[in-house]
Design a protein around this nucleic acid. Structure first.
Lengths: 122, 122
DNA sequence: ATATCACTTAGAGTTTACTTCAAGTCAATA
DNA sequence: TATTGACTTGAAGTAAACTCTAAGTGATAT
């Protein structure tokens, strides 16, 4: 699978895919004689994971580190678990903050819908 | 209330508070003769709102625009409602993406807890 | 009196995550 | 054969949101 197809499938740009590769988040992707990247099913899976985590706001640096640990083999299991738990905590806090803002937006939109012209900003 | 107290209460830095003010998200905060900011209850409420929305990832530019509209009075109600709905949509999409990543993290941590050493990254 | 501390300003610097640029290769089509 | 289009590279540029610096003021503690 070529870079443009992968980019399209995941809603990323080809530049972003090459950037992720440079940063060690994916690949290195094997290239044909002409130097063109050919993405395997394994590569695609990795991209799917990276995309999911990035969409949730997890940092490139965390992903890099986690992947490095993963490649370090079984002896890194403990540390891997620890950083996943840490990221989960951060994510949970963000989720809660977002839920709160979401509720607040809903409430305010509801007031607009009921034509209640609140003199308060929010 | 002085800037450092406000900063402490909201877990922001004084620099950030002054930055928000420069950007027109809050204030202008009235100052004493010595030039020192004195935050009123109204100011605090505004900061609370800004903090809530920023924590959810809403952009400074959106907040700026919404606040400008608000200060434009009743004739801006329609547009205000529209941009709130737009932001709610964006927020909902982010929430869903984060929930997915959260579930995935949970699943993986669960595997680690059960000592299932998965050969897959995620 | 002098030092300390919190505050003030304008403006420069930093971080994160891309994004764009310039220059070039290669295969296919007009 | 010439041009089009997708790919390649390293490096420079950008946007958003802070964050820090330098220089200064003014009230209070020693």
């Amino acid at each position: 699978m070529q870079i443009s197809e992968v980019a399209k499938e995941f809603g990323l740009t080809t530049d972003t895919l090459r950037y992720y590769e440079r940063e060690g988040l994916i690949g290195p992707i094997t290239k044909g004689k002409n130097g063109i990247r050919n993405y395997t099913e394994e590569d695609i899976k990795r991209i799917q994971f990276v995309k999911c985590m990035r969409s949730a706001g997890l940092e490139i640096n965390f992903l890099k580190r986690y992947i490095q640990l993963f490649e370090g083999g079984d002896k890194t299991v403990k540390e891997r678990r620890e950083i996943l738990v840490e990221q989960r905590k951060i994510l949970k806090e963000k989720l809660d903050a977002m839920q709160e803002a979401y509720n607040r937006l809903n409430y305010k939109i509801d007031l607009y819908d009921k034509n209640i012209l609140d003199k308060n900003l929010m």
